[in-house]
Design a protein around this nucleic acid. Sequence first.
DNA 1: CGGCGCTGTGAATACGTATGCCCTGCGCTG
DNA 2: CAGCGCAGGGCATACGTATTCACAGCGCCG
Lengths: 341, 341
Amino acid sequence: MALSDKVTSFDIAALAGVSQPTVSRALRGDKTVSAATRLRIEAIARQLNYKVDRAASSLRKGEARTLALLFFEDPLPDDSHINPFFLSMLGSILKTCALRGYDLLTSFQQLSADWHVDYADSRKADGLILLGYGDWQLYRARVEQLVGQKTRFVRYGSVAASGGLGTVIGCDNRAGGAAVGRHLIERRRRRVAFVGEASDHYPEFRDRYRGLADALREAGLAADPGLHVDALSSEQAGYEATQRLIARGIGFDSLFAASDLIALGALRALDEAGLVVPRAVSVVGFDDIPAASLTRPPLTTVAQDYARAGAVLVDTLVRQIAGEATDHLTLPATLVVRAST
Amino acid sequence: MALSDKVTSFDIAALAGVSQPTVSRALRGDKTVSAATRLRIEAIARQLNYKVDRAASSLRKGEARTLALLFFEDPLPDDSHINPFFLSMLGSILKTCALRGYDLLTSFQQLSADWHVDYADSRKADGLILLGYGDWQLYRARVEQLVGQKTRFVRYGSVAASGGLGTVIGCDNRAGGAAVGRHLIERRRRRVAFVGEASDHYPEFRDRYRGLADALREAGLAADPGLHVDALSSEQAGYEATQRLIARGIGFDSLFAASDLIALGALRALDEAGLVVPRAVSVVGFDDIPAASLTRPPLTTVAQDYARAGAVLVDTLVRQIAGEATDHLTLPATLVVRAST
DNA sequence: CGGCGCTGTGAATACGTATGCCCTGCGCTG
DNA sequence: CAGCGCAGGGCATACGTATTCACAGCGCCG
């Protein structure tokens, strides 16, 4: 609206011949306002294109009717690129927010930054959604502070490693990893390389690795530490890690990348090394990002239900804001078999 | 922060032994506050983890220090999926917003909805960024209303077809289309099919088609209307349109898809029809979405500089909010040759 | 040595909404 | 017919900040 002619509830009141509080009550649907009066007020409000001033309303009510979405990740060189898996959730998060009557503030931060304090303290948002892969040491400290501040928040991550810190929504990483392992064994693969941090750095990745180990054990095999290379979650990291893996000269017939981004890098490294997928090496990723179906060959991977995840994140946070106690939730992880295995 | 113990500027004032206005002045860096007082206040504020209440500040100052990002698109069946090209801008938009001290409200709407009125009138945001491909008839009406309301906004689109409505940032679609045409002609292609709306529906697509026609004309060729099929901007639409094109039985040796999403669908349709890319048909897209380098074969396309676009959109809007008059800006479009041609 | 201007701060207030409390009138009951 | 209850709506106020104005003290110049 033009800055000059801001329409307020007083303007409506004057035109309707009532007081300002009556306008406020009428528009919020308060039953103490007679239907006739309410209709009259609503008509005038519509005509003047009146909208409740959000700042004034927030100030008075002490709530922002806004959630904050925080993407974060480890400090990486290639900035301003958000992990496509988390980006995929954005659509359903936005949709669910709209459904619940909340706006969404979005931000993208390095995990090392001080994002954790700002939003709740300044009352910009009533709650936080945390989305990202990052160093658990750093992440944990931030999350602890949120808990200490009594900030309402939900995060997507490893339910198994929640550490009692807040409410966690996540997929069943361990079962997903096990499904990958069983699938590779079915395909007569015995020497499975794992590319990705399997330490505490990313609890999700560690769970996936454990799932793989579970499946190998079931089949009477053991995970060979020589076939594990660390990698952060990026295409470049996956590429470099796979090069290191190949350079070791330890034979492997299949490769489980802890995320699809890593898998993309692995495919590139294998291609450059002349290792044909899936003939020489079967490759499996995790996440089922949109790109996974487009690689050469299309990538077998584990799908997380990001649409449902987004909706659940929002709904859980909203319930928390309403004062309910909320529980963790583990969503299924589904193996999607494509031509890379 | 816990709801119970909200820290206000009065608390700081009491501890510092000054009045509330002095706290406000000190924290905003007003020079009338002595350095000693300011340092004392800052120390206490930090210690109490005080943050300026956004709602109160907005109400008093009449500005939200917030921009609203609106993704929109034609009503399509597969909802909650945002066009990857526009999604790619999100990172640089977020980064630039942070740099300029603005928060970003994000929303995803069908073009037919009434998104255009809410944000500015309710003072939720100081300005709007419009991102999407949509029916120009509908879009134009919305944009006109924004202009009528004197809302500050910028949009990404066709500068050529700006219609004098607001400030438009866009890439040089016509030059990009011409580059595609020349490239195909260099590759000895003469019968270029165009898949995508070339009418007023999407002005960007029309510009691309005109660029193609420019290049054909330069080479003494004419665009064959029989080789043009309409398609909205989605993979599915591209797939179906390409099937229709093939069914026509009019020979073509190359295909220019008005967007990469359409190109993805075209590749699928060509593959199913047994037409080998690029041997039988060269394929070119537009946008250079992340997926473009992953298709089989990797897609030749026209890259838009989305990182720069995002930054320019924010900066332009910020200048507009500051009261400056802002101009359209056309960014370069760069042909990226890959294996599909 | 008195007044003037400057520096630093306090007092008062406005931003627009939402809500607790009070008041008025009308209908109904005893 | 008096009193009571309730529906409908007005009055006053609070939310926390930022700004305008007023004012006190001090140094300095004439």
